[in-house]
Computed example of a mutant assay.
Amino acid sequence: MTSNHQEQECCDRAAWVPALLQVSDPLFPTGAYAHSMGLEQWAATCQFKSGDDLVQFFQEHAGPALARLELPYLRYVRDAIVAEDWATVLELDAEIDAWKWASEIREASISQGRGRLRLLKKLWQASPEIETYSAAFATGRARGHHLVVAALQFELLNVPNEAGLMTYAYQSLANFVSASIKLLRISPESAQLALAAGLEQLPDWVAASKQVEREAAGWFAPAFDIASARHATAFSRLFIS
Rank of each mutant, 00 (worst) to 15 (best):
R116H: 07
D204I: 10
S172G: 07
L74D: 02
L152E: 01
T30M: 01
I181G: 10
R141D: 07
F58Q: 00
W16Y: 12
P128F: 05
M37G: 01
A163I: 06
F224G: 10
L123Y: 07
F28T: 01
A151L: 02
S134Y: 14
N158C: 08
V212H: 09
S36G: 01
F137E: 03
L74C: 04
A19H: 00
D93K: 00
F235L: 12
A232Y: 15
H231S: 08
A138L: 13
L123H: 09
A136Y: 10
F235W: 14
A87G: 14
P128D: 10
N161R: 15
L238E: 13
I110P: 04
L69S: 01
F224K: 13
H145D: 05
G113V: 02
P29S: 09
A194Y: 08
L69Y: 02
S180T: 05
I226P: 09
W16C: 04
C11K: 10
D225C: 10
R106C: 06
R106P: 05
W219P: 08
S127K: 09
A67G: 09
F220E: 15
L157A: 06
L152P: 00
A98P: 05
R237F: 14
G31L: 00
S50W: 00
S187N: 14
A94E: 07
S109Y: 08
V77K: 00
D25F: 03
A232P: 11
I240R: 12
E104Y: 04
A14T: 08
E40L: 00
Q171T: 10
E104I: 00
R141E: 12
K122W: 08
S109V: 13
F57H: 08
A227L: 05
G113N: 05
E91I: 04
S50V: 01
A194R: 09
L90M: 00
A151I: 05
A191M: 11
V89F: 03
A229N: 14
L184V: 11
A34W: 11
Q22A: 15
A14C: 10
A163C: 11
F235Q: 15
R214Y: 11
E40C: 00
F28L: 06
S228L: 01
G164E: 02
D204A: 13
G115I: 03
F137S: 03
V77N: 03
L74E: 02
A142F: 07
G198H: 10
F48M: 04
E155I: 04
S190E: 15
A232V: 13
